[in-house]
Amino acid sequence: MDELEVWGRFKAGSEDDFSLLYRHFAPIMLRYGNRITSDKELIRDCLQQVFFSLWKSRATVGTPASVQHYLLKAIRNELIKKGNRAKLHEALPENYHFELEDSHEQTLIQLQTAELTRQRITELLSQLPARQREVIFLKYYANFKYDEIAAIMDIGQDSVYKTTYKAIARLQQLLHNSALLLLTLFF
């Protein structure tokens, strides 16, 4: 989809294009929300609010360089505005014990399916501080550049890079403990 064409027709009042924008970007916005808070209802409220405001202001809203960037920043702001601190993700303590598999063989069998690998990675990521998880999502899943992430999170570019690096170094350590990395062959 050519997002700027769709955006232009949405601004002109096309409901079909509004629906297309929603279908295209709502899933990634919900996923991003999951990284920031575990409160699903809050995420859904914020998603609705962002699109409701967008529809209301369609005639006056500008045309962003990247629609995805614009919408992710919008839902982040909404989550911070609406969410109280307690609801936002708290990292598990550093010494959180990671359970090793009983045996090497069992690990192999369990890693046969992509779904299980996914669950293990989720488990590992949940041991990182909230900010590191958020950066990982924006960098690897949403594929933004460091300066774009800095603009979404309202922090310096250097600190985005440092946070990313720290997250990876920590994950690497956790992965080596669980021997997962060596067994996960994608290509």
Binding site: P27, L30, R31, N34, K40, E115, T117, R118, Q119, I121, T122, L125, I136, K139, Y140, Y141, N143, I168, L171, Q172, L175, L181, T184, F186, F187
Partner: peptide, 15 residues
Amino acid sequence: LVLLLSQEQAEDHSS
């Protein structure tokens, strides 16, 4: 590492 981190997470399915 890049490929692992670029994947969806388990919790994403309900999205």
